[in-house]
Design a binder for these strands. Sequence first.
DNA 1: CACGTTCTCTGAAACGATTCATCCCTCACT
DNA 2: AGTGAGGGATGAATCGTTTCAGAGAACGTG
Lengths: 336, 336
Amino acid sequence: MATVSVREVAARAGVSVGTVSNVLNRPAKVSPATVERVQAAISDLGFVRNDAARQLRAGRSRSIGLVVLDVANPFFTDVARGAEDRAAEEGLTLLLGNSDENIDRESAYLDLFEEQRVHGVLISPLGEVGDRLVRLRARGTPTVLVDRQTADHSFSSVAVDDVAGGHLAAKHLVSIGRTRIAFVGGPQGIRQVADRLEGARQAVREHPNVSLEVISTESLSVLQGRFVGEQLRARNPADRPDAVFAANDLLAIGVLQALSMLGDVRVPEDVALIGYDDIAFAAAAIVPLSSIRQPSALIGHTAVDLLLREAAGGDDFVHEQIEFQPELIVRDSTGG
Amino acid sequence: MATVSVREVAARAGVSVGTVSNVLNRPAKVSPATVERVQAAISDLGFVRNDAARQLRAGRSRSIGLVVLDVANPFFTDVARGAEDRAAEEGLTLLLGNSDENIDRESAYLDLFEEQRVHGVLISPLGEVGDRLVRLRARGTPTVLVDRQTADHSFSSVAVDDVAGGHLAAKHLVSIGRTRIAFVGGPQGIRQVADRLEGARQAVREHPNVSLEVISTESLSVLQGRFVGEQLRARNPADRPDAVFAANDLLAIGVLQALSMLGDVRVPEDVALIGYDDIAFAAAAIVPLSSIRQPSALIGHTAVDLLLREAAGGDDFVHEQIEFQPELIVRDSTGG
DNA sequence: CACGTTCTCTGAAACGATTCATCCCTCACT
DNA sequence: AGTGAGGGATGAATCGTTTCAGAGAACGTG
């Protein structure tokens, strides 16, 4: 019951603590007979390495931190999976933090990760990349932005071109003949939202007869989507947009629930609908949902990769920006 | 750039390291003037506490570990959220591990958590509760089973009565006049699957004219469900079941995609379909999905609660089994 | 004025694994 | 026999924080 340390193991096996440590970390340097004796002592005593002591000595932990905007969004769990797989290849553990689009929670996770002396941090940051991240990196924690990049290339990042994605979505809606488009998303402080909207604006600008209405939401959840859907449904049909571009699939599914399940507004006949992320559930929605696909697992995978390079590269590492292109997936919700 | 420790902070503020520690942990014990001086030194130097050293001294970390079967399953992310919220109230962090229904990964996470000296472990274990968990607890890490309980009451647990849930689902299918029911799920080693099937068996046994076919899957994913759906679709309609009870909603959604999106088998007319967990996407499925609801966030919340009690209680704590009752949610996929 | 209290602050001793300079043996070779 | 090389093992020092017994100073009280 009392805690077992290397010291007890050493005593039991009749060797020094240094040898026990060698058995644990460099068994090749120890004679087979000794290895066996030490291992017997370890299992007899039920010895379990103390990671805190290990880390203290090593200076850095063997894990990397990932802060996402919303764990309930399958897009981010996919990213996390990709990252976890890549991290596992390197013997690293992934610590997952959920900021829930809340700046205080984001900050709390960063503090935590920094105190833990993680190998590095992957983050899908809220709002602008602030002091907080600059300081974090300056103090020695490599940092890579996920699903987001900075204009000034001061951080490494793995992202998808959200402006292009927004453009793709809006252009598609226009191409099927819609002229009164509504963009649903928010808060605007989230860069992904702002970029997707910007892309949509660009696409609309190319067609003088097409209008774009912006409906802001408090967050990117199914619930918020349903709320917006209710409002649209309550409108006079003439005032209703004939197409909705939702900033992500969760919102789109919420809108869809409100419009379609309650029956009177038809998708896509009355209102075409497109989401963003192409989560697994989009294809199975009540009306299969058109969406903009991002290579989510690949993003996570690549981000860890880049983080490792950044960590190895030292101070003079040239920050790298990797950008993937989004892909339009057409399903029934936009005609098909 | 060089790592800043309490020692440097102390020197800069002209106090001893003990005082710095007091400022950090018990500021009330230190005179306001000193507190201010130390805090100035901390921010000047950019000092960040080393958590490893803290933990080493403390003996235990301030986090608890949660091992789930599948992070891609919204049910488990909901459980995680509930757990995280409750943990945060106590100033504890939640470490989320994903066993992916793989015994080696489960084991790796348990090792990791034990080396980290976590406050306790919540786990939705694969297969039988083995030696591994017994040893873990014996060595001093409180453990609570999630979504699962042991027959012999040797562990504390928070669960939902899966037999009752299975019974509820099958009885419902019978009540809408279905007589050839297929249970889709697997592997059977997962207790939740076995219990839900057992409940279904019991319900079917009460009706001599109703048959139950078991279709095993390798995992509980959308993909596996789609695979089963394809098979059902390929069958001669006469050989097809007239109702499917899927062991969870992911499977059900997969089955639904295969049957319904490809058009020729109608849900619920030809085949009624019910899932399990009532995840948020069930209501928005192409045919809104009937399901068995579990109070997911509450499960997580309660599990942390129980873990804390178990940790405080010491060796003589009487393990407690908490069981919630599932609830039938009827939607279009079973007639409605 | 002496004495007990209260308030601040001190600094050395843990916590447990890892590292590294060092020592002890063997063994091979001249 | 003497020398050098090299495999094996040693154990003190180290990482950074917290704790705790106790030292001083300041204050009030009889």
